[in-house]
């Protein structure tokens, strides 16, 4: 069974009198353990496709199946559960809650799932990502690379079926960007499925497969 599958997924935005087709009939399959890069020029619909798969934008038409379940046929509560347990998001600008410490940001998905805070797992993840001594710090006290590692730990804490990373290196310098890519590759080698949006060809080349988007459509 595919971890993630989309069937003729379409997203249309209304802007005044015009319709903007951000994603046009996208049908893709991501198998378990794959690391797939979505590439394309700016405005080609990469982020929108990722958001549709992750359940944070509703499609105009089409289906998204995660572990065989059509997520958009579910109720709000069921979809929230999918987002908690099956999907892990990593955003370009980290999107950490500024009033929570790094540890609390990592633990947030557990709290949202009403599960006890597994401090041992948090420490393991933090050690793996090299931020074990930063757990008590707030995002404003961390560098960009450190914040992105906290975001990665947050995405991994609930052992999701798929990690969705939207330009995770976009706001980082070269050294940190390479380090983050190394971590994502390591995470993939550990058996996690990763779907990565990037405009960097060399990062896309590191992935097992590439999906090329052009004007909202998949061109390969």
């Amino acid at each position: 069974m595919n971890t993630v599958e989309t069937k003729q997924l379409t997203k249309i935005y209304k802007q005044g009198d015009y319709d903007v087709v951000a994603v046009n009939n996208a049908s893709i399959c991501i198998e378990k353990g794959e690391m797939v890069a979505i590439v394309g020029q700016s405005g080609s619909g990469k982020t929108t496709l990722l958001n549709l798969i992750g359940g944070i934008e509703k499609p105009s038409s089409g289906n998204v199946l995660v572990d065989g379940v059509d997520i958009y046929s579910m109720s709000d509560d069921e979809m929230a559960k999918i987002r908690r347990n099956k999907v892990g998001h990593i955003f370009q600008d980290y999107k950490l809650i500024p009033i929570f410490t790094a540890e609390e940001n990592i633990a947030m998905p557990l709290l949202l799932d009403s599960r006890p805070i597994d401090k041992k797992r948090i420490k393991e993840l933090a050690a793996f990502l090299g931020i074990e001594d930063k757990l008590g710090s707030y995002p404003s006290q961390l560098s960009g690379g450190q914040n992105q590692r906290v975001a990665i730990a947050r995405a991994l804490i609930n052992k999701p079926s798929i990690i969705l990373a939207d330009e995770p290196t976009g706001n980082l310098d070269q050294e940190n960007a390479d380090e983050i890519m190394r971590l994502l590759l390591e995470i993939n080698r550990m058996g996690n499925t990763v779907l990565l949006v990037t405009h960097e060809e060399r990062y896309a080349a590191m992935c097992g497969r590439k999906i090329v988007m052009h004007d909202g459509s998949i061109s390969n």
């Binding site: 929230a80 999107k95 809650i97 947030m108 949202l112």
Partner: peptide
């Protein structure tokens, strides 16, 4: 709104 968007993306419900 930003905090709420993040929390929702990580599985909170509108009810919550």
């Amino acid at each position: 709104s930003s905090d709420m968007g993040i929390i929702l993306s990580y599985g909170a419900t509108n009810r919550g």
